[in-house]
Design a protein around this nucleic acid. Structure first.
Length: 528
RNA sequence: GCUCCCGUAGUCUAAUGGAUAGAAUACCUCCCUCCGAAGGAGGUGAUGCAGGUUCGAUUCCUGCCGGGAGCACCA
């Protein structure tokens, strides 16, 4: 990579000037007119050397000398040094982009990584919040894979707990209702029938009633089969499924085995988070049932049973931030070896313009209804609809909330999934057409496209490192726009002839857009 | 009350302490005898307020204002 050579050359030059400890970056300039790479080394070094930044930059420019692949080195602005790649280097990048490993890196090579995401609850709807978790988790899993990791996808589903009791209670009251309706009904009546529903919860947990068991099994199976259909549409294949019915007992056992970590209080077993600057949370309630917190500990055990992992990442919603801090503090006391191995990525929630969505109130937009509506909007194309949804979720930084307007729905043009898909489809159509043309050697001036392609590996690497898919979205959209613009003013095939270089360039764009979409988990159609 | 997150064009959003704050959408002009118009070319429009650190602040620090989330038996 030329970037590494530039970095090395700058480092050497700084050393020669007696400023080797200066922290600097070699990055893509904000404006292409400023070259292909730029460094702030002179600005940073000026302070230590107590000299004028422009003078330091001039000295540095002299000192870096000739760098293989760099055609021109310029001092600009307040003291930036800009590097321009040669036409030969850009041509090499195009060749590079057509090879298999394009966009891969070695950030996680040899690491076993467990990514947990989606996490819907049986007996409740799969709503657009789960769509969000799925899109983010799937892309992060793919970013790990692009970094060479051995990735295992896992899904953790709450098949026991009060929500199940509410749903089953609702179903007992109105057997004709769907499970979703039953849950809404049970929730609404929870306050007035609390004792009854809590008892039912215990019954479910202990599996002590045959009729309840049967109802439970039916509901659970129905939900899981339904979720599986959605995963298929979304393009996710899980390696492991964890369930709360399994993590509950494991968690309970852990809590009981570690009295040095947990405390009895008012009939419940709690963790005093105040000791480590957090707050107290209940792990086992006064009825002896493990709560979400204990189950999360049990999940750690369940995950460990699948084999050693180097990193375990959970994708979950922002509002669980504080719970996770407490749970992690407790987990690290029990499993000191887990320190720094448990990562969390928090996403915002999908807000409706009409107010907060709540499955308890029944005003949710389900994942499947959104996909269905959008598919209609996308002229019957489900892959385009899925792309539009995923793009909307992934286009901004992971932690941000998304305001979802059910009326306006989602955009299929401009800054959107279909926009990138369309550019890819156009490139593919062009390449199909070119197979009939005669390939000729012809001088072609480097375009903006080559100069964009240069940065693709860096973009993927940064996204892999920070676990932020939106860098890939931003880049892919930029490349798609540049390609669309190129397409509008350039004819690839003229009189049945196609230039070898231009052909390689379009192939490189196609390959890069494809790779980008793959990492994002967005379908890459052949035509649309 | 305490803790944590977030304030960028009308709306949605990008920017690794750097160069003229970049897109999209909406709105106003144009462009399909020409490889796919879900497209292209152009125009109008933005960093909540006040300090501080820095050669340089959308970015870091402090205060204020505005929004959101969490804070003992739900997940």
């Amino acid at each position: 990579m030329v970037r590494n050579d530039i970095e090395q050359a700058v480092q050497n030059a700084l050393k020669a000037m007696g400023a080797e400890e200066v922290a600097f970056v070699v990055e893509r300039p904000t404006d292409m007119a400023h070259g292909d790479y730029a460094t702030n080394a002179a600005l940073a070094a000026a302070k230590i050397l107590k000299k004028n930044p422009r003078d330091v930059a001039a000295e540095l420019q002299e000192a870096v000398g000739n760098i293989q692949g760099v055609e021109k080195v310029e001092v600009a602005g307040a003291g930036f040094i800009n590097f321009y790649l040669s036409a030969e280097t850009l041509a090499e990048v195009v060749q590079e982009a057509n090879k298999e490993g394009w966009g891969s890196n070695d950030l996680y090579i040899g690491k076993k990584v467990l990514v947990e995401y989606t996490d819907p609850n049986p007996f409740k709807e799969f709503h657009i919040g789960h769509l969000m978790s799925n899109a983010i988790g799937e892309s992060i899993a793919r970013l790990f894979a692009a970094g060479g990791a051995d990735v295992k996808r896992s899904n953790y589903q709450g098949d026991v707990g009060v929500h199940v009791a509410k749903a089953i209670w609702g179903k007992q009251q109105k057997p004709g209702d769907s499970w979703g309706q039953a849950y809404v009904h049970g929730s609404a009546e929870y306050e007035t029938h609390k004792q009854e529903i809590d008892e039912l919860n215990k019954t479910i947990y202990e599996k002590s009633d045959a009729t309840v068991n049967k109802l439970y099994d039916e509901g659970r199976e129905e939900s899981l089969a339904h979720f599986e259909e959605i995963y298929k549409i979304l393009g996710t294949k899980f390696d492991y499924y964890f369930f709360e019915h399994e993590t509950g007992p494991l968690g309970l056992q852990l809590v009981e085995q570690h009295p040095e970590v947990f405390t009895q209080s008012e009939g419940a077993i709690i963790f005093r988070g105040e000791d480590v600057g957090l707050h107290t949370r209940v792990f086992v309630n006064s009825k002896g049932i493990p709560t979400y917190e204990a189950k999360e500990l049990g999940l750690v055990v369940a995950k460990k049973k699948k084999g050693q992992f180097d990193l375990s990442l959970t994708v979950t919603a922002n509002e669980t931030r504080d719970y996770f801090k407490v749970v992690r503090a407790a987990a690290e006391k029990i499993f000191p070896d887990l320190e720094d191995k448990m990562l969390t990525r928090f996403h915002g929630f999908m807000k409706l313009t009409t107010g907060k969505m709540s499955s308890r109130l029944g005003n949710v937009i389900t994942g499947e209804s959104l996909i269905k509506d959008l598919t209609e909007e996308a002229r019957g194309r489900e892959d385009v609809a899925v792309g539009a949804i995923k793009y909307m979720v992934l286009r901004q930084g992971t932690g941000k909330d998304i305001v979802f307007d059910p009326e306006k729905s989602l955009s299929l043009e401009g800054d959107s999934g279909p926009y990138v898909q369309y550019a890819l489809v156009r490139a593919r159509a062009l390449l199909r057409k070119a197979t009939e043309a005669e390939v000729v050697q012809k001088e072609t001036a480097p375009s903006e496209l080559e100069r964009l392609l240069v940065h693709f590996p860096d973009v993927i690497a940064r996204a892999s490192l920070e676990l932020e898919p939106h860098y890939v979205i931003t880049y892919s959209t930029e490349l798609a726009a540049a390609f669309n613009s190129w397409y509008a003013q350039t004819r690839l095939i003229v009189d049945g002839k196609v230039s070898a270089h231009a052909l390689a360039l379009v192939t490189a764009v196609e390959h890069t857009l494809h790779k980008g979409l793959v990492v994002l988990g967005i379908p890459a159609p052949e035509e649309m």
